[in-house]
Simulated scan of single mutants.
Amino acid sequence: MASKKTRRVTPASELLKKLGVHLDPELLVLALTHRSFAHEAGGIPTNERLEFLGDAVLGVVTAEALYRDYPERPEGDLAKMRAATVSQRPLARIARRLNLGDFILLGKGESRTGGYDKDSILSDTVEALIGAVYLTHGLETTRSFVHFLIDDALEEAAVLGAGLDWKTSLQEICARLGLDAPAYQNVSNGPDHARIFTSRVVIDGEERGTGTGTAKKHAEQEAAEQAYRYLKIREDEQTRQAETLA
């Protein structure tokens, strides 16, 4: 669904002030060039290679931070915390904090449909910028830059608990309660550039949660959250009853 936000044209120098790093103007433009713009401009380079590099660097820096800062957490928790920090949605929130959508170079079609506020485009551009910083400054400066971007999200991930991965948490609580594994039923509507997914999660033949999102996995996570919260009430009640009888 297209965003109602009005996009303004903003000088790239303002973005560099927000980021606190220097980048060569040509490299900065490349990091901001979405494939839709590149296609309309006659096939100029896109930011996708920088995105690939930035994704790898982001993963290393985040994994290192989690390993060092949370020595008591098992590998499974660290993996969930990493996903809660560097997956599409948290990166898109970081991009919105920086008003990054005001700087991305988009084709006319993507601009008309609110591409500057799509999670996928925003998160990809964050990764491309990380790649550009790495090429320019190397690992140490990039590590500081990544921490500037994600430290708040890392702190939030540390206290999320079940919310680190609702689908996994739902599967675990179903096992504890002796229920069948959750089954997800998904449908999508809308054109390819603005598709909306709806997910229903069914447990033991009963629908326990629904969710919507611009990606199937987001809709499933929302549905899983609803179902988990319902079953957690049931599990807590069973625990109280058992304690009363003990």
Rank of each mutant, 00 (worst) to 15 (best):
L245A: 15
A153Q: 12
A132V: 05
G54I: 01
L122Y: 06
T142V: 06
R240Q: 10
V60Q: 11
L27I: 11
V201H: 09
T136F: 07
A92K: 01
S188M: 09
K17P: 00
S120Q: 12
V146Y: 02
K80D: 10
V86E: 08
L23P: 01
L106N: 03
H34W: 10
R49F: 11
A65S: 13
E140S: 14
E220C: 03
D204F: 09
L27R: 11
D119V: 07
G107Q: 07
E51T: 11
G107F: 07
A194I: 01
A2H: 11
A132Q: 03
A95N: 02
I150M: 05
A175M: 09
S13I: 00
S13P: 02
R89A: 09
A162I: 00
F37N: 01
R49K: 15
K18N: 06
E237K: 15
A183G: 00
T198H: 08
P182S: 10
C174W: 01
Y116F: 15
G163A: 13
G131A: 08
E64C: 05
R200V: 09
G114E: 07
F52N: 11
E127A: 12
I94V: 15
P71Y: 04
S169V: 05
L160F: 08
T6Y: 06
D124H: 14
R82S: 14
I104C: 01
E140N: 12
K4W: 08
G109A: 13
G59N: 12
V57Q: 02
E40Q: 14
H147M: 14
L122W: 04
Y67I: 03
